[in-house]
Design a protein around this nucleic acid. Sequence first.
DNA 1: CGAATTTATTTTAAGCTTGAAATAACTGCC
DNA 2: GGCAGTTATTTCAAGCTTAAAATAAATTCG
Lengths: 169, 169
Amino acid sequence: MDDRMIPLDAETKAVEMPEHHRDELRLWLRLLTCTTLIEGEVRRRLRESFDVTLPRFDLMAQLDKAPDGMTLSDLSRRMMVSNGNLTGLVDRLMASGHLDRRVSSTDRRAQVVSLTEAGRAEFRAMAAEHEGWIAELFADLTPKDQKDLMRLLAKTKGSARRAIVGDAS
Amino acid sequence: MDDRMIPLDAETKAVEMPEHHRDELRLWLRLLTCTTLIEGEVRRRLRESFDVTLPRFDLMAQLDKAPDGMTLSDLSRRMMVSNGNLTGLVDRLMASGHLDRRVSSTDRRAQVVSLTEAGRAEFRAMAAEHEGWIAELFADLTPKDQKDLMRLLAKTKGSARRAIVGDAS
DNA sequence: CGAATTTATTTTAAGCTTGAAATAACTGCC
DNA sequence: GGCAGTTATTTCAAGCTTAAAATAAATTCG
């Protein structure tokens, strides 16, 4: 249709011809699909092989890297989940004997959580298998693919972080 | 300790010196971090701007692309969530007037779900904003970065799919 | 046709997750 | 010291999510 005769102000144009951001949207959906696909499979295997949930595994993974334990707040930040979520997760892992918890010596509000010996041993056994699963799921990527993807994801993470903090300030 | 005198069979060696798959693991963790970061922000904005949850938005997005509606099974496959999950999600969106549901004309087991006019209008308004948010979150990526990332994620998806279906057969 | 299998959906129990409100303890500052 | 503001954690209500079992309808095939 010939629109040469129809003047539109900037606002109307913005509504009728919004900027094209379809590509970013497709990229985001693909990123989400990849993650969901892999996460679902890892969840399934953890349950089948070890009868453990992914959140429990993730929490133990954080603690395995911190021999002296971590506070709930540290865990919350690292795992990017809410504080309230952690309270329940830690309660259940305490009940099953995987975790120890003590009051911080420097801050009476803070709980320092750490793996029990049994918890650590169980986690290490799971982690060894888990690492193999991940390698298997990414098997078609060449070392160069992996390097490139790593770099692009780092850039994406930086971009998102900037957009998020920039939003608040 | 001097272990020159201690012969190890292949299996023992495999336990003590597993193949290095750390790089794949780091890649997976970065992928997960990116997704979690962006997903959290999108969730937050959907709640603040529209008082809607991400699962509701995702479900409506699927239906917006299907003018004639979809069955719960179709939705379940597309969204990669369980059937039981969908039952509740659809119930709540029905209750809020966003969805219609009818029995399939060709299969009396199947429910065909579609957006109401109000639901579609509300979704479109949200989707327009949403698309801008995503563009903003990915803003630091050049068109080439986007193209490369798109390709690498497609390859990753293919790799994971192969590992998953290959597993079952 | 009819039995066996598959497919679509719902239900249930358990656990996960969030955001908001409440409590308690710490920190900075006057 | 003590008030104001921040931080660590818990609690709560609501909703999300899954896996497994149950129900019902369709399909396959002998």
